[in-house]
Amino acid sequence: MGVTPPVVTREGRGEDLNRLFDPQSFHLVVAINALDRTSDPMQCIERMIEVCKPGGSVILSGPENWALQNAYGGLNQWNFLAVDDDLTIWRPNRKISLQKALGARAIVRARTDDPDRYFVEIHVPEVSAEDAEVAPVGGDAVDYAELYDDVYDRIPSYTMAHMSPGLRTALRHADELLCAGRDCLDVGGGPGYLVEALRLPPFRKRAFGADISRRAVELAEKRLGPDIVRVIDADGRLPFDDASFDLITCFDVLEHLDEPDIDRLVGEIRRVGRKGGTAIFNISLRDSASKDITGASLHRTVRPVPWWIDRLPFAFYSVEARESELYGRLNL
């Protein structure tokens, strides 16, 4: 008809909106009957806010508690319930308050006049000229690459196979790993000792690794060759395509991250995992004796078991190693 839309429809996931569109691109961003089918609805909402202009609105709407009504069958995996100007996003073992999650970054208004549907408007506040002048560029993001390049240069135990916590965890659970899928990714495994073990008998897996530290990846390349262990992007994106792996291991990694970065990494693990696959985590529940370059503990998030279970809806979990470690399996 000779009509060229100003923005062409693009294929992609809600969790990746910030890769599909520039920040602050739209006055209105809408998701109707969609978020209950995503792997991480909170991350989708965060991305919608990122591409919305200051002063604009994000609109969310859909059937209330639709996943529950459908017994979590098919595509419906998350429930939404609007109450008192808040939206509760939930499923078994996980509950998120949208109002609390967004805090002062946005204003949440929920309509409850329809008993069968939720309707939520998220207003993105204007940024005043005064605020813009003093706003820090880049925020307070942690440079994990710098921190862990220093760790691998300074702390010898991080370069020793027999000191690898991931390798020790894998050996304790060798039977489970043997039965898991053939295509495997180890996230945050440093110099790749677990990747190397998974490629050998009795596992014989097509195993790869990813780590934020270029120093660690260089150590892995000396033993395994190039592209077996790869550097995680600066923005936290795992350097692999969607749905690449049946099994993903992440041993003694999450506690090294700040809380928002935990959610971001778990979202990436879901992205590169195949439907029906498995992600296995081991999480330390205690502080670390090792310090980073600033003198702070390497364990940035030390929380009790209930906190982690609420964060990660494990299909199975156990508390091990004298109750200082949480071992959990997450279905993808």
Rank of each mutant, 00 (worst) to 15 (best):
Gly236Tyr: 05
Gly277His: 01
Trp66Leu: 07
Arg37Glu: 05
Gly55Phe: 15
Asp211Arg: 00
Val127Pro: 01
Pro313Arg: 12
Asp143Ala: 07
Arg109Glu: 08
Trp90His: 08
Leu224Asp: 00
Arg168Asp: 11
Ala170Phe: 04
Asp153Gln: 14
Tyr144Thr: 02
Arg274Leu: 10
Asp85Cys: 13
Val137Asp: 13
Val302Arg: 02
Asp114Met: 14
Ser57Gly: 12
Asp258Gly: 02
Ala129Glu: 11
Leu254Ile: 09
Pro260Lys: 04
Lys205Ala: 08
Tyr144Cys: 01
Arg303Lys: 07
Asp235Arg: 08
Gly73Lys: 11
Leu219Tyr: 06
Arg274Trp: 07
Ala243Met: 05
Leu87Pro: 01
Arg230His: 05
Glu121Thr: 07
Ser128Gln: 09
Tyr144Asn: 00
Glu126Cys: 08
His256Cys: 03
Ser157Val: 13
Gln43Arg: 10
Ala197Leu: 12
Ile45Ser: 02
Arg286Leu: 14
Glu320Asp: 09
Ser157Trp: 10
Leu171Arg: 12
Ile122Leu: 11
Gly14Asn: 04
Asp85Pro: 06
His256Trp: 01
Ser57Arg: 15
Glu255Phe: 04
Glu320Tyr: 08
Pro63Thr: 05
Tyr193Glu: 01
Ala135His: 15
Arg154Ala: 10
Thr169Ser: 13
Val124Phe: 06
Ala141Glu: 12
Arg109Phe: 09
Ala34Tyr: 10
Ala207Cys: 15
Glu221Ala: 09
Ala110Phe: 07
Pro165Asp: 06
His123Arg: 06
Glu218Thr: 09
Val3Ser: 14
His162Asn: 14
Gly328His: 04
Arg37Gln: 10
Phe316Ala: 15
Ala180Pro: 02
Pro156Ser: 07
Gly62Gln: 03
Arg300Lys: 13
Arg182Ser: 15
His299Gln: 06
Ile212Phe: 04
Asp84Trp: 00
Asp153His: 12
Ala296Phe: 11
Gly189Met: 03
Asp235Trp: 10
Trp308Thr: 06
Arg91Pro: 02
Val142Ser: 08
Leu167Val: 09
Glu121Asn: 06
Arg303Tyr: 05
Pro54Cys: 08
Gln43Glu: 11
Val29Cys: 05
Asp131Ser: 05
Asp292Lys: 01
Ile89Leu: 07
Leu75Glu: 13
Val120Glu: 01
Gly12Met: 10
